[in-house]
Structures are given as C-alpha cells and as structure tokens.
C-alpha cells in the first residue's frame, strides 16, 4: 500500500506497526531519550541559567561526591526511602493478594465491596495524601474518637499479647506496625488488588473443580493452585509497588527542591541518577529472586 508491490504482506504489516507506534516513538525520542541524555550531562556539570540561554561547565564527578559526601540530608533520605520501601512492599503484596482473594469470592454486596476497595486508586495519590498527613483537626478528631471507643486503631494490647505468647519481638513489631499503618497500606494497594483480581479471574475454574473432586481443602487449593497461577502477577505487582513506593516520597521532594528552589540543577540531576541506579539495582535483584520461583503455565 505504501511502497507498491515490492513488499511482502508481512513487511507491509510491519510498516503499519511503525505507523501505530509513531506518536509514541516521537515522544520517546524527544521527550524521553534526549532529556535522559541531557540529564546525564547535567549531572556531570554545573548548569547556569541566564536570560540569554544557559551555560554548562563540566565538573566531572563533583556533583555526585557532593550529593553523597557533603549534602546534609541526601544519604539519610535515601536510606529512609529504601527502608520504608523494604518494609511496606511485602505488606502491600500480601495484603492485596488476600483482599483480592476475598473479593473474588461470591457474597452479597460484592459490587459495593469492590467499589470501596478500588476507591484508594482515586483518592490516595498526590495532593490529597500530602494534605491528609498534615492535618490537625482531623487527627484531633481521630484521637477524640479513640478515647471514646477505648482502643481505636491502635494495637498496643495485641502487641503485648503476641510477645507474651513467645513470638519474636521484631516480627511482632513489624506486624503490629502494619496494623497501625493499615490506612497507608490499604491506600497504596488499590492498583495491586485490581491486578490480582484480574489474575484470579483468569484462573480456569476446572482446576478448582478437579482438585475438589480429588479431595483438596480450600487451603490446599490456594497454595497448590491459586498461588502458582498467580505468581507471575506477584512479580508484576512487586515491581509496580517498588516503583510506586519510590515515585512519591521525601527523596523526590528533595530532588525537586534542589532543582527549583536552590537552582542547583547539576546536583539535582546527580541526586536523581544515584536514586535511579539504586532503584534499578533493587528492581533487578527482586526480579531475579522472584522470577526463579515464578511458575509459568506452559501453553
């Protein structure tokens, strides 16, 4: 169609493929690849903005060493970001898989429950979350509510009970900490619940039927059927959660303020590159570790 009859049908369709991805490709080259390259360049230099353009002085690794060795907050923020990711992501994954399994069962009012559980996808991003955390009338009211009801959303009793029962203190603190941060966890697992739910619905029902006939309990069916079948999505969700945990935290705020309030563009670029490299290392490590356990159904 484009170049006459010389092309085979396959090649022609290939060309149409390029047509379809053309807008994205243009965007990728000009709005992603080029800026990415420039960003590397900036991270090695000093960028000065002046009314008649900009000036770029090559500095070598100075920005990187500044960020790592001299900046007051950078190391601490970076480590905090990584730690909070390591703490939260497993909880988010377990929680969202659990909720998805429940929402996949049949019960009255399932539509309502699903609608409510997907609500955080809409509300818990960006500006609303940031206002939420710093609001004192709301926290005052929450405290008032807790005084009235006795315990509220705290888990002090549970904690002492579990420790007395002989569980390791670290584990107990981790779990009760999760209970205390339940809103945070619930609100950041909306998309993950959706992905898991879609995956659960894709598992063929005859597998469960067959296992029931063979006498498997629900517990066994979960670990022998649901879990292996859903495992590719566990990988997807871990990657998503890791990225999500890293896109909006104090680290990104620090990078932003360094660029647009202190106007140290070079330092900001080098900060973000160190950050990106650490994220990629973590992602590669987790992908490597999990993908060995992932079960892919052979087709």
């Amino acid at each position: 169609m484009l170049f006459g009859k010389k092309l085979t049908l396959v090649k022609k369709r290939g060309l149409w493929g390029w047509v379809f991805i053309a807008p994205w490709l243009i965007g990728f080259i000009f709005l992603f690849a080029a800026p990415l390259f420039q960003s590397v360049l900036y991270s090695f230099s000093e960028l000065k903005l002046s009314p008649n353009g900009m000036e770029l002085n090559f500095l070598g690794l100075t920005n990187y060493s500044n960020a790592l060795m001299e900046h007051v907050d950078y190391n601490r923020t970076l480590i905090e970001a990584v730690i909070s990711m390591v703490i939260n992501v497993p909880l988010i994954i377990i929680f969202s898989l659990f909720v998805a399994t429940i929402l996949n069962q049949k019960f009255r009012g399932r539509m309502w429950a699903r609608a409510i559980f997907f609500l955080p996808v809409i509300l818990a991003s960006g500006v609303i979350a940031s206002i939420e955390s710093g609001d004192f009338l709301q926290s005052a009211m929450m405290q008032a509510g807790e005084e009235n009801t006795g315990t509220g959303l705290q888990s002090f009793e549970l904690e002492s009970m579990l420790i007395q029962a002989g569980l390791p203190v670290g584990l107990v603190e981790y779990l009760t900490g999760a209970v205390d941060r339940i809103y945070e966890i619930v609100s950041s697992s909306g998309v993950q619940i959706i992905i898991f739910l879609a995956g659960l619905q894709a598992i063929p029902a005859q597998l469960y039927e067959a296992s029931r006939i063979e006498g498997a309990t629900g517990y066994e069916a979960f670990w022998k059927i649901t879990f292996p079948m859903i495992s590719p999505l566990i990988l997807t969700n871990v990657i998503y959660s890791v990225i999500d945990a890293f896109t909006n935290n104090e680290m990104t705020t620090l990078i932003q303020t360094t660029a647009f309030q202190q106007f140290d563009f070079g330092l900001s670029a080098s900060m973000s590159w160190i950050y990106f490299i650490i994220i990629s290392v973590i992602l590669m490590a987790t992908t490597f570790l999990i993908s060995r356990k992932v079960y892919y159904q052979s087709e």
Partner: peptide
Amino acid sequence: LTILVPPQTLMVPIYLL
C-alpha cells in the same frame, strides 16, 4: 523503561525544553 525512570531524573531537561 519509561515506567521505571523516575520523572525527577528528566525533570530539569524537560523543563528547559
């Protein structure tokens, strides 16, 4: 890759662009 790279990395060049 475009999902993985944090937007902060591209922030300054995009702004200048």
